[in-house]
C-alpha cells in the first residue's frame, strides 16, 4: 500500500501539494483526476523522487520513500512512465529498453533475458529493436514506454497522462496494456485528463483540487455521479474566481 501523509511540495513558487493525504491499495488501478493545476502530476513526481516533499511522508508498505532519490525509489519497486515524449528519441528501442534496466546493468544476462520476456508481451520491442525511438508513431512509443518501465519488475507503476496526444485507437491499446500490466499483479497509479477514460479503466478514483484530495471513491461510483460532468466541463456556477498564479506546472 502506498500512503501519502500530509504532503506539501512545490517548485519554489509556493506549494502545489497542500497537505495531501492519499492511500493507494495494492494491486489496484487508481486514477487521479482533477482540473489543471490541481497538482495531479506533482503527486507522481513526489512519489517517484523527482521532487522532494517539503513536509509530510510518503510510505510504501510502511517504508519511507520521500527521503529517497529517483534511482532509490525505482529500486524500491516504483517505476514511472513519464508524460508523452518520455522515450529517448535519438536512441534505438533496444537502447531504450537497456536503459530501462539501468539499475541492473551489471547483471547483463538477466537484463537481456528480461527484455526478451517483455518482447514476448510487447512484440514491437523486438520487431523495431534497432529503429530510433523518434521514428515510431505516438502509440508505438507509448507501448515501448510501458515496456521500458517494466524492465525492473516494479510492484507499482505510475502513469502520467497515458493518453495525452493519442488517437482513440491507440487509447484503446493503452487501455488494454494497462489492464494487462495490472493483471500481472502490478499496482497502477495514474493521472488522467480524459476523466471518462481514466475512471472506466480504474477501480478506484481520486478527485484532486488545489493540492488536496477532494473525493476518493470506487471509480464506478465516481463515474456515476451527476456532479462530475459539471466539475470537469467548468459549468459549475459556484466555482470561486481565483486564478492560480503560475498556472499548471
Amino acid at each position: 500500500m502506498i500512503e501519502f501523509r500530509n504532503v506539501c511540495a512545490g517548485y519554489g513558487g509556493g506549494d502545489v501539494l497542500q497537505g495531501l493525504d492519499l492511500r493507494v491499495e495494492d494491486k489496484s488501478i487508481t486514477c487521479i483526476v482533477g482540473p489543471n493545476g490541481a497538482g495531479k502530476s506533482t503527486v507522481l513526481r513526489t512519489l517517484s523522487g523527482l521532487l522532494s516533499p517539503r513536509v509530510g511522508e510518503i510510505l510504501l508498505d510502511g517504508r519511507a520513500l520521500h527521503t529517497l532519490s529517483a534511482a532509490q525509489v525505482l529500486a524500491a519497486g516504483v517505476a514511472q512512465v513519464p508524460q508523452q515524449g518520455g522515450l529517448f528519441g535519438g536512441l534505438s528501442i533496444r537502447d531504450n529498453m537497456l536503459l530501462g534496466g539501468y539499475l541492473v546493468r551489471r547483471q547483463r544476462r538477466e537484463l537481456n533475458k528480461r527484455i526478451d520476456e517483455l518482447a514476448e508481451v510487447f512484440p514491437i520491442v523486438a520487431e523495431r529493436a534497432l529503429d530510433k525511438a523518434a521514428d515510431l508513431s505516438g502509440g508505438q512509443r507509448r507501448i515501448v514506454e510501458f515496456a521500458r518501465a517494466l524492465v525492473t519488475e516494479p510492484s507499482v507503476i505510475l502513469l502520467d497522462e497515458p493518453t495525452l496526444g493519442l488517437d482513440p485507437k491507440t487509447c484503446a491499446t493503452v487501455f488494454e496494456t494497462t489492464q494487462q500490466v495490472n493483471a500481472l499483479g502490478t499496482t497502477v497509479l495514474m493521472v488522467e485528463q480524459n476523466v471518462r477514460f481514466g475512471l472506466q479503466l480504474a477501480d478506484h478514483g481520486v478527485v484532486m483540487e488545489r493540492g488536496q484530495v477532494l473525493i476518493s471513491q470506487p471509480a464506478d461510483v465516481l463515474l456515476g455521479r451527476s456532479d462530475m460532468a459539471s466539475m470537469f466541463f467548468g459549468a459549475a456556477p459556484t466555482e470561486p474566481a481565483v486564478d492560480v498564479p503560475g498556472g499548471p506546472a
Partner: peptide, 17 residues
C-alpha cells in the same frame, strides 16, 4: 469516428475487456 468517438471506441474496448 476520427475524433469525437473517444467514448465510442472506448465502450467497445470496455465491452471486450
Amino acid at each position: 469516428e476520427a475524433y469525437l468517438g473517444d467514448d465510442f471506441v472506448l465502450e467497445k474496448t470496455m465491452g471486450g475487456a
